[in-house]
């Protein structure tokens, strides 16, 4: 209940801060024809907080990616199962998650669950909501990966006298990994950007650090511009790393 009030107030504080800013500007213009001067320097003192935010965001993304993919694997296998009892719930889960906003899912976990006795901290709720969300997208990616390996590749493996485990290990796995790697990499970037949403419940990550710096400096525009640019740098960095990994594993790979 405390959180609800907090959120409600936070939102109205934001609005009133913006109004105050607009008002000040109007007065300045009227009185002295002054323009707003951008002061990014004031934020520089908080650079260590931003660095900490980058680490927190990457940590959160990595944890939810791992849990989400594990969940996604289970769901993908269930969705491919010949049993209706497993297939139907898996489909419902994937459709329900993919057709509702992450923010509402987050609110259900963080604000809704406590009313039925499940109380969670902001960070835990963030990990749970993001993982459940990622699970649905992960399931779709893994399903596509399994379907991408052609049937005759498996038959060829068996014809060479490989056991079904060896076929999976040496024939299917590598091809499936290569097929889904690009989707996984771009999904990771999307997930990393989506983690900014959990700042809405005050979970610790980069955007939340930004909100904290804003509350100290009152430099809303500068702070959020800087934070947004920081996300861009993380995205570009991640894309470079992922392209490098792809090259090292799938392109440069010696023939065994």
């Amino acid at each position: 209940m405390k959180h609800i009030v907090y959120l409600y107030e936070a939102s109205s504080i934001l609005g009133s801060r913006r109004e105050a800013l607009t008002c000040t500007l109007r007065n300045l213009r009227q009185v002295r024809q002054l323009d707003y001067t951008f002061k990014f320097g004031a934020i520089w003192r908080y650079s260590d907080l931003i660095l900490e935010g980058i680490v927190l965001t990457l940590q959160l993304s990595l944890i939810t990616m791992i849990i989400g993919l594990a969940l996604g694997l289970v769901v993908a296998l269930a969705a491919n199962s010949p049993r209706r009892l497993m297939r139907v719930p898996a489909r419902i889960y994937v459709e329900a998650i993919r057709n509702t906003p992450l923010l509402v899912q987050l609110f259900i976990v963080f604000f809704g669950l406590p009313t039925i006795g499940i109380k969670l901290g902001a960070d835990t709720a963030a990990v749970i909501a993001l993982s459940i969300n990622m699970g649905a997208y992960g399931a779709e990616i893994i399903r596509a990966g399994i379907e991408s390996v052609r049937r005759h590749q498996i038959e060829a493996g068996r014809a060479l006298g490989l056991t079904s485990y060896q076929t999976f290990r040496h024939v299917v796995l590598f091809q499936a990994m290569k097929a889904i790697y690009p989707s996984l990499a771009s999904q990771f970037v999307l997930l990393m950007l989506a983690t900014s949403i959990v700042s809405a419940i005050g979970a610790s990550e980069l955007f939340h650090q930004g909100a904290f710096i804003e509350s100290r400096t009152y430099r809303s525009f500068e702070v959020y511009t800087l934070i947004t640019v920081t996300y861009l740098l993380i995205t570009l960095g991640l894309r470079t790393v992922f392209a490098g990994i792809y090259w090292a594993i799938f392109v440069r790979r010696p023939i065994r």
Binding site: I197, S199, Y224, T228, Y231, L236
Partner: peptide
């Protein structure tokens, strides 16, 4: 596409 929509909205 490289920045969060939330950041764009705030900016």
């Amino acid at each position: 596409q490289g920045t969060p929509l939330l950041g764009q909205l705030f900016v």
